[in-house]
Each structure stands twice: as C-alpha cells, then as structure tokens.
Amino acid sequence: MSRWLLGEFRTSQQLLEAARGLRARGFTRMDALTPFPVEGIDEVLSLPPSRLPLLGLVAGVGGAGGAYLVQWFTQAVDWPLDVGGRPLHSGPAFIPIVFESAVLSAAGALFLGVLVACGLPRVTHPFFDLEDFRSASIDGFWLAVTVVDDAGRDAADAALRALGAAQVSLVDEARR
C-alpha cells in the first residue's frame, strides 16, 4: 500500500523549480502530474529512456517477415497457381503487403506498448479520490512524493509548502 503527498503548483515554471528543490533535499521517488508535457521535467525526475522505439522496430520487422512468409507459403508452396508462366515466388509483388503488415503490427504494438508503459487502463487510481486533483488535467501542476513513514511525510509536507505549493494533501491507498 503506497502513500503519496500531493502538492499543487500554479505554473509549469513553479513545478520545475519545486521538483528541482525536492531533489536537492533528497526526495527521489517523485512524479509530476500536469495538463501538458512540461519541458525539462524528465531530466529532473531522471526518467529512464523509453524502450518503445525498440518495441516498434521488433514488431515491424516481425510483421514484415510474417507477411512475406504467408505470401510465399500460400503462392509458391501450398497452392502453386500458374498465371501465364509468371514466377510463383514473385518477391516484388509481395512488397506492398509486407510493408502494410510491418506498419500495422508496429503501430499496434506501439499503441499497446504505450498503454503498458503508462500502466493504463487504470480508471480508479487513488489520486482520483482527491477532488482537487481534477485540476491536474486542467490548470494545476501537481507533484506527487511517495512517502514511506510519518517522518518522511512531515518532511515532504514541509518541503512542498516551502517550495510554494498552493495546497498539499495526503493520499493513502490503504485508507480507501
């Protein structure tokens, strides 16, 4: 059961400065929740680089290879149909479907990959219990600090307030 301390800031600049401030004070388990992507927050939170490009590549190559195999097997092996003496294993004629299948499987994998990487769908996250958290998709810039014990909670509370948070609330997954 996790506990978070959520602080709301008014602008993206305040959020960035507060995140830097919290880091300087030794808080590392943080997340920012904002209505639009804030430039530079990834570096402050030191998020790992996304592995989605690799996923897209693998899925794309897999889709292309699969499509070529299906076409080769159906046209040249399982049901060889002679059309005016044209080659049965006619690679160039297979290219359009190979390309389309590569795009289809890469895009599908990326879509699912984004959802998995974001931990979605999850419509009942504990943050949503906090009524004011609605502003996170409108005009509020929130910082969530994961706290383990009461001392950590008090320290994070003080730090968030000192850095200019407009409001600070505790969200406890255990108390839902």
Binding site: A32, S50, L110, C118, P121, H125, S137, A144
Partner: peptide, 18 residues
Amino acid sequence: SLGWRGSARHWRNWRTGY
C-alpha cells in the same frame, strides 16, 4: 480516457509512442 493522469511517465511514453 483509460484513467489518464498526466504523469510525467505517461507523457514521456505517450510522446515517444505518438
């Protein structure tokens, strides 16, 4: 919205994927 929270992790993966 599948429970979108606008977390920095969401945005990062979303932008890459998009």
